[in-house]
Amino acid sequence: MEATKIKYTQKDYKSENAVRWCPGCGDYGILNSLHKAMAELNIDPHKIAVISGIGCSSRLPYYMNTYGMHTIHGRAAAIATGVKMANPELSVWVGTGDGDSMAIGGNHFIHAIRRNINLNILLFNNKIYGLTKGQYSPTSDKGFVSKSSPYGTVEEPFRPAELCFGARGNFFARAIDVDMKNTVEMLVAAEQHKGTSVVEVLQNCVIFNNGIHEKITDREWRADKTILLKHGEKMIFGENNDKGLVLDGWNLKAVTIGQDGYTIDDILVHDATTKDNTLHLKLALMCIEEGLPVAIGVIRSVESPSYEEEYMNQIAEVQKRKPKKSFTEFLLASANVWEMK
């Protein structure tokens, strides 16, 4: 049967609606990567549901030729949970932003992850409220000046990976909006991972927060400021692939191979599948301010039973023990039943 299956292309996942993001917005790249990833996964478009909340990123479902819901602020993860529970066969994607899922929807975000329901959460992180025109968000750096923080914020930001791991998440990847090749790979990996998969995409808001990730993502220095982690491979980065990560006591340290006595054998190998998330968290929190490259790629991908799978198994077990009855039969068999003759 598989052989006769339709081979879909990228355009089969594109809806007829004209895309209405600002010219130059990072969302275009993400949308493209998503279309490509779906074509690669070759899932029937009618077996996909894309659910979003509110914000620029949440316009996503309109641009997908799949089933979709553009819902209310912050609730996409919970609504998508209902979709997945109603029909576990569907491939369910959540499009959300840093305001949508880190602020108003923070609770649903962490609880979806805690349950490990099989959703793919695309978190478009541009560190700003774009659709409401430029207020700081929960991921804005401390001191960030915006319309609602004219003197700079005095609060610490959330780092999405910390929330994900704090909620005992099993899949976390980080992508860059313009880096389509790697983003597609991560989206495919997210879909293939059973359970809640979070893909944080560093996304540029060209109007209200232009260049916010530039220090990391600009092509000119991206190779030195980021590291693409691949499971089973050495943690090597740099323009000349001559830098790597080693453990220095409890901490990660960036070194140059061949300098200070470090050889390729000292460089750590990435294991995304280890249950202990200590190193995953350290990798996810690396930042250039501490002299470490920002981690890109699938940082953690651990197999664990998904919520809906466990739930359906429980239903099956109960039904095996209690043979199926009609509603009336069930009532007649329940306690406290008597007959009036």
Binding site: T71, A78, V83, N87
Partner: peptide, 14 residues
């Protein structure tokens, strides 16, 4: 909120 939100999702999905 999540109580009704999941129900809205489940309703959409049949």
């Amino acid at each position: 909120i999540a109580g009704i939100a999941t129900s809205v999702g489940a309703s959409f999905a049949g």
